[in-house]
Design a protein around this nucleic acid. Structure first.
Length: 371
DNA sequence: CGCCGAATAT
DNA sequence: AATATTCGGC
């Protein structure tokens, strides 16, 4: 009687769900006259689930998770799918507002899972509008040929008006990958990312609408981190520099700045710990004042395509002396740094090297000042 | 002005 | 929590 709540395929698995549905149907069949539609609904639901079982199971495991939040439930299967068609007034077929592309990326997941690498050639570092459903950061994978093609779905950097014209340019994305066409615009783009907003013609009330949230995918973040490394750490890098190193088209200073701010906060708050295997945030550990790149990460990124900028980083994967080149003074240990002395330390970039990092060992995090 | 970091706002 | 925007110093 009072089930109806956790009846979600997600939580129980399709097989169980089907069984439950069948039970349901038995009950309903007792009152065929009063519940004709319910009977039909359930029947169709069962049907649909069976199909899911046969055909799509694999896919489900794959997109198990996504990182870009929002999306409530990655795969909220079918339910609504059949519910809608079923009857719903029959008429009103209409198209939904948001066209939402149609990319139902199937990609055959090769290899295990978790290896999201390959982005390199495929684009979409950041995905303007996190498709509510699935797909997210792992979609492509096998497509060596660029998938996108805007017609298909594609996402391309939206260009809204950006008050701070920061979209300049250096995107020489040779790989065609990331940056991709800052100029691919003529396309009406009526789709995706709805937020291209405004976009010409009408609309434009003085109200500046808020910018679309940029979703920092892992790939994007990875680039961000690499840039940080090259710049000597989060504390010496500035948004603009980072953006330039990332070479991601469409990415603005403000976005980077914001991300950087968050990053700094996080890393200051919990210099170490967390991350490790899953770690979302980082591919880098901050140990003492050194960034460490877990081997695993190195591997994956290497195979997936290194950043265009050669950034070998620590070959061994152990310590990446980066950040060590700070002139002295400034922050010797991010962990407990407070002596603000901004400004000065940010001139020395470009060179970043000397200071061979000898400070290995003993760093042991310390944090000792118990008093 | 543009850039940056910190403080706020959503 | 994660982004976006605003504020104030350079």
């Amino acid at each position: 009687m009072q089930f109806a709540e956790k009846m979600q395929p997600l939580k129980m698995g399709f097989r169980e769900y089907i069984e439950a549905l069948e039970e349901e149907r038995k009950k309903i069949q007792v009152f065929p006259k009063e519940l004709p539609l319910s009977l039909e609904l359930v029947t169709q639901a069962i049907e649909a689930c069976r199909q899911q079982l046969c055909g799509t199971v694999a896919e489900y495991n794959l997109n198990a998770q996504s990182e870009c939040s929002e999306q409530t439930s990655t795969d909220g299967p079918v339910f609504e799918e059949f519910i809608i068609p079923i009857k719903k007034k029959a008429s009103q077929a209409s198209v939904e507002e948001d066209d939402d592309e149609e990319h139902s990326h199937k990609h055959t997941k090769t290899t295990t899972d978790k290896k999201k690498s390959d982005w390199l050639r495929s684009v979409q570092l950041w995905n303007p509008n996190p498709p509510p459903t699935k797909e997210d950061v792992v979609p492509r994978k096998t497509n060596v040929v660029e998938v996108k093609r805007n017609g298909g779905g594609a996402f391309q950097p939206f260009q809204r008006e950006e008050k701070s014209g920061v979209s300049k340019a250096n995107n020489n994305n040779e790989a065609s990958a990331i940056g991709k066409a800052p100029s691919s615009p003529p396309v009406p783009a009526t789709s995706y990312t709805g937020p291209v907003r405004v976009d010409s013609k009408k609309e434009e009330k003085g109200d500046a609408q808020r910018k679309q949230r940029r979703c920092w995918s892992q790939e994007l973040h990875k680039r961000f981190l690499h840039a940080l490394q090259q710049l000597g750490g989060a504390d010496s890098a500035t948004p603009k520099q980072i953006r330039e190193l990332m070479k991601v088209d469409g990415l603005t200073n403000d976005e980077v700045k914001s991300h950087l701010q968050k990053f700094r906060l996080h890393t200051r708050r919990s210099p170490i710990i967390h991350n490790s295997a899953s770690s979302q945030a980082g591919s880098l550990f901050l140990v003492g004042n050194i960034f460490v790149q877990p081997p695993e990460y190195a591997t994956s990124s290497a195979s997936g395509g290194e950043l265009t900028t050669a950034t070998p980083a620590a070959p061994t994967g152990i310590y990446a002396p980066v950040a060590a080149h700070l002139p002295a003074g400034t922050h010797t240990s991010p962990i407990m740094k407070h002596s603000h002395s901004p400004s000065e330390e940010k001139n020395n970039h470009s060179v970043h090297s000397n200071s061979p990092a000898s400070s290995s060992s003993t760093h042991t995090i310390t944090t000792s000042p118990p008093a």
